[in-house]
Each structure stands twice: as structure tokens, then as C-alpha cells.
Computed example of a mutant assay.
Amino acid sequence: MNRQYLREILLRSPLPPDSYLNDLPAVRYLAQGHRLILDAPVSFLVGENGTGKSTLLEAAAVACGFNAEGGSRNFRFSTRDTHSELGGYLTVVRGDYPQDGFFLRAESFYNVASEVDDLDRIDDLLDSYGGVSLHKQSHGESFLALVQNRFGGHGLYLLDEPEAALSPTRLMSLMILLRQLTEKGSQFLIATHSPILMAFPGARIYELSDTGIRQTAYRETEHYRLTKRFLNDPESMLRELFEDSDETN
């Protein structure tokens, strides 16, 4: 059974006029009074770099009570205060209360793994992560071990670019885990650049661009169209790319 633990994301009040966040397309869209409606077990935030995908995901995680660097709601460590102030200005409209939850950030996963090791010395926390230190596995193996062992179902899981450490084969393994977890009543909000991951059946894809945020069909995303064009004829596309580069220089 699918449940919606996170139903809507909206901007509760305007950001300070001098905040750099006002320049992000995702923030401008919410500042116009729009809401991001989440009505599927898996929702993707996609778009070019700089559109605000990771910033919005991080802010939503903070507004939901997660640690800004990642982890569960019980994680309270901080190695460096680099998260944005956006979470303090967001309102998240919730549905059912999740029994589990986790915020996974690719860029600070090392810090989360270190925190798990530290906490394990106190209460044997490592058992719920597969029994092996995440530091003693490859980056990709530790990502999958986390999802497979720590994510228990009936939970809200926010993932920021989980494809960063995963091969295409491992990405497909992740999709199997996503399916199993959604069948256990879980909800995912994922920021990604992966056209493989975006193909997850029944997912909502929200494309962020200079014009705002819009729900987009999988085959209409720039990620799918560009990847398909490249794979169909890489030689031609590379030739065109390098010719354009030579003309620019």
C-alpha cells in the first residue's frame, strides 16, 4: 500500500532580498505562490545544474526534521555548516506519519558513514546497516548496503543524486530496492541526473528550469532526449560538439 508522508512543499514566507537563493529557478517558482505537489510513491527532481534541485531537496529534508548533512532524524552531527537557509522558510504539508526515514546526500555520505561508526561504539548501530562499516566497502557498495539494510519500509526517504556512486548495473539494483520499498508503503523524493533512474515505473518527474517547475513525461526530459541522441550516434554528436567548440574558441 502506498502512502504519502510528504504531500506538498511551499514557501511560507519570502527570503531576505539579498539572499542568493532568490536567483534559483526553483525558489523563484515557489516565491510566486506555486506549490510542489507530491502525489506518487516516487518523485524525481531533475534539471540542469544550478536550477535548485539539491538545494530544494536539502531544504525539504531539513523542514521534515532530518539532519542537514544526511542521516535519520536522530542524527545531529555537523562537520561544517554549509546548508542553505531555505529550510527555515519552507512549509511541508504532511500526510501519514512515517515509521522510518532517511536523508541521503552523495556529497556528505562520508560524514554519515563516520557517524554510523561512532554511534556503533555506543549501541551496536552497525547491525542495522548490514554489520559491516560503510567505510570498509566501495562507495557504490556502501550506498546499496545502506538502502538494503537500513531502509525498513513505511518510510520517507530523500535521496540526493544517488547515482553518483553507482554503475548502470547497480542503478538497476537500486531500482529493485525502490520497488520493494514502495510496495512496503514507502515514499521517495529524489534529485537526479540519471535517465536510467528516471524510468522508474509510475514515478512523477518534475523538471526544474528557468521557467519554473513542471511535471514532465520521461521521454520529454532533456536527460532522456540527449542521452538517446548520443547513444544512437555518438560519433556524429561528438563531431558536432567538437566543431562547435572549435568555432567558439
Rank of each mutant, 00 (worst) to 15 (best):
I9D: 00
E240Q: 14
R76I: 11
L189A: 03
G95S: 10
E163C: 03
A59N: 01
L57S: 03
L119E: 09
L178V: 11
G87H: 02
N249A: 14
A26I: 05
L238W: 15
Q137S: 09
S209T: 15
P16I: 06
E220N: 13
S138C: 07
R225N: 04
L126I: 14
N149E: 08
A60Y: 01
S43E: 02
T51W: 01
E107K: 13
S78I: 14
L231Q: 09
A61L: 05
E115I: 06
F75H: 09
S167I: 07
F102I: 05
A113G: 06
D118E: 14
D210N: 14
T55I: 08
I205L: 08
Q180V: 10
R204G: 05
N74C: 13
Y110P: 02
T227L: 10
G131L: 07
L171P: 00
A63L: 10
E243V: 12
Q187E: 12
G153C: 10
L56I: 09
D127K: 09
K136R: 13
G202I: 09
F200V: 05
S108V: 05
Y29A: 05
L177F: 13
A191H: 01
L208I: 15
T216P: 04
I9K: 01
E207Y: 08
G95Q: 06
T221D: 03
Y218V: 05
N22D: 03
Y218G: 02
L177S: 11
G88W: 07
G153A: 10
L226Y: 06
A106S: 12
E69Q: 14
T221V: 07
R170P: 00
H193F: 07
L86A: 03
R239F: 13
G155V: 06
F188T: 04
G71C: 08
V62C: 06
F44N: 00
G47Y: 00
A68V: 11
L177A: 12
S194R: 02
A60N: 04
Y97C: 12
T227W: 04
S108N: 05
L30N: 00
L178I: 14
R150L: 04
G71S: 08
S78H: 11
L15A: 02
E240W: 10
H135F: 14
T211N: 15
G52Q: 00
S13V: 09
E48L: 11
H34Y: 15
S54R: 07
A145M: 08
A63R: 09
N111A: 12
R12A: 12
E107G: 04
N249V: 14
G140M: 03
S167Q: 06
E243W: 10
L15I: 03
L231C: 09
I196W: 01
L30M: 07
S78A: 14
S19N: 03
T82V: 13
L146E: 00
T79L: 11
F242R: 15
P14E: 03
D23C: 05
D81K: 15
Q215S: 12
H223E: 07
H139E: 08
A40W: 00
I9N: 00
D244V: 14
T51I: 06
H154W: 11
R12S: 13
A26D: 01
A165W: 03
G131I: 10
L146M: 11
F75P: 02
D123L: 12
E220H: 12
F77A: 06
S142Y: 03
P201C: 07
E48N: 11
R179L: 10
T192I: 07
T82L: 13
L125Q: 04
T227G: 02
L119N: 06
L11T: 01
Y97R: 15
